[in-house]
Design a protein around this nucleic acid. Structure first.
Lengths: 151, 151
DNA sequence: TCGATAGTTTAGCATTGGCTAACTTTGAGT
DNA sequence: ACTCAAAGTTAGCCAATGCTAAACTATCGA
């Protein structure tokens, strides 16, 4: 093995970074539509000030992000009005919530404490492929069955 | 439950976003020191062009990031020279590699395909708490033992 | 109806992480 | 010793995510 081949291996393996890098905007979009969906469900409306509290950012940041998500067709609102989701936004929120729920349940079933599971699920959910998600789901079911047998 | 308490719950739960948001710079640092450590181990040196291939970014991006990591005390190099890690950089690389290995092994043990496991581990590793990491490690050991019994 | 107050937006700034183009340095070969 | 290609840096651009300060709306009570 000459010195070059090691570097070539690195370069090939490095393709995995492509999907990780440059996806942050998408993650933000998912987090926001998920939060908007939650607020709409829980309180019937969604204002910038609510999202600012949820994400612990300033209202200005929310305002700017919402403007971007509106041009991306995920969110809809008029000046000084409450936010609502477009059809695309609802679709994305449903997918995100489902993924979040599966990851969270999996971690909790593994015995991770509630709080840690929340934080970890939040961070992990955007990086779990559908293949892994399915395995998580099956694993949760299997572990649940077992613990039921024991108790 | 009045409308306000729902929002307060959101706000409290929202603390979990604090750790997720604003940690991207740290993730980048971990990825870079990990890659530098790999290159040093595998080829004995580490040049910008190598890292550019690994991360699929331009050399300019690497150059800029290295400048930042040098001011942060993780990386050390002279103009036009190869990169090396400081003591702090090595410490961080070791931690990052360990976390990466545990997550990767866990996914593979769950039956995720090699390639998917690589990609998912890359994305997930920065969001797994030490509590979850320990559980992953134990779970991997348990599952390995079981499959050994069967085969 | 008219403030006061709460909520939203605009303006302007910083940081991170990307890029291309242009330039400099290094080093290998002739 | 010189040239030239490869590697690294500088300059200058952009988008996303964050902030504060200041301006603007909307709305609820008096």
């Amino acid at each position: 093995m000459n010195p070059k081949s090691a570097k070539q291996v690195e370069a090939i393996a490095g393709k995995r970074f492509q999907s990780v890098r440059g996806n942050h905007a998408n993650e933000t979009a998912e987090d926001y539509v998920e939060a908007i969906a939650d607020a709409l469900q829980q309180t019937g409306t969604c204002r910038g000030v609510d999202l600012a509290k949820v994400f612990c950012v300033s209202q200005v940041t929310v305002s700017k992000t919402m403007a971007r998500l509106q041009t991306e067709g995920l969110v809809s609102f008029e000046a000084y009005g409450p936010y609502s989701l477009t059809a695309a936004g609802i679709r994305l929120a449903v997918l995100a919530k489902r993924r979040h729920a599966i990851v969270l349940e999996f971690l909790i079933t593994l015995g991770i404490s509630e709080g840690t599971a929340q934080v970890d699920a939040e961070g992990m959910e955007h990086h779990v492929s559908s293949e892994t998600l399915e395995v998580f789901q099956k694993m949760t079911a299997t572990l649940r069955k077992k613990s039921k047998t024991i108790s």
